[in-house]
Amino acid sequence: MISYILRRTFAAVILLLVVTAVTFAIFFLLPRLAGQTADQLAQQYIGKSPTKADIAAVKQNLGLDEPLYAQYWHFIKGIVAGATYNLGPTTAHCDAPCFGYSFKTHEAVWPQLTSRIPVTFSLAAGAAVLWLVSGVVIGVISALKPRSFFDRTFMGVALAGVSLPMFFTGSLAILLFTYQWPIFGRTYVPFTENPAQWANTLFPAWCSLALLYSAIYARLTRSGMLETMNEDFIRTARAKGLRERNVVTRHGLRAALTPIITVFGMDLGLLLGGAVITETVFSLPGIGQYAVQGITDNDLPPILGVTLLAALFVVIANLLVDLLYAAADPRVRLS
């Protein structure tokens, strides 16, 4: 078990390195290959009509005058060992893990990420609870009464939920519940400040996001339950004289839920890397919003930082899913 985790961790580190290298290549190597010069890049971070000296100064300060492999190396080194940055009158040391400073705003990336994680986490966790519970409940009921009115209605709603874009549901939720009937708050409040207000503000975002996902989970649960409820062991459970409720929950759902855990873990991991559209629609200062900003500004350090963090979440989620799966299904052995 320990050696399994160690091996997985090692693989994860390699994977993260590859992810950063690919991200780096997409945003910096490709434009370079397409003919963009370091001068042109530097110019994006200067106000207007820069002199040659301005460009050279910015280039040097951002490290853009170095060869690409050196820039990449410095980034990786910063994460492991920290780095020193020029603030102007003084220099600042940025402790490991140092994800560098934004080219555009010159803000350190790491504090930005850490201050945004709680927001994205709040969004993801709340929505996840909602969609998991509602998706599974709807899926189970639908599976127990296939082709019933309930089943058809909810599967129809589920289809709509998957198809409707967040732009639509999110905006509608905002319009209805923060303006038409101002039940919910508009500005994100940290949990530590005021838990009630926190939940109150996030609720429309949770619901919108949960609608999208619970639709998927309802369908997943439904098909899983339909399959499981036809299994021989369900017949056995009934033959024991168990109440149908216990047959469904202890035996049917227990087996049908296991594959859902896998999907759930991955979805949650992905979401923690930034719910880009939801955060944009609901103006939540999370990771996704930061990523959008970085991409808009062609700002390498934030982009790399978010990518790395997102990849890290996915990797961790993956590992947890595998461990959970092993815990849930005794037939699975980790090796």
């Binding site: 021989d232 017949r235 033959a239 024991k240 168990l242």
Partner: peptide
């Protein structure tokens, strides 16, 4: 009456027993 007065043995015990619970658990439950 099921399980108490009348009980049943199935053809394929692998698929007829729940894969996630121990044998003991399943007997205890019954």
């Amino acid at each position: 009456l099921r399980g108490r007065e009348m009980a049943m043995i199935f053809q394929d015990p692998l698929s007829a027993m729940h894969p996630y619970y121990t044998i003991g658990n399943q007997i205890v439950e019954a």
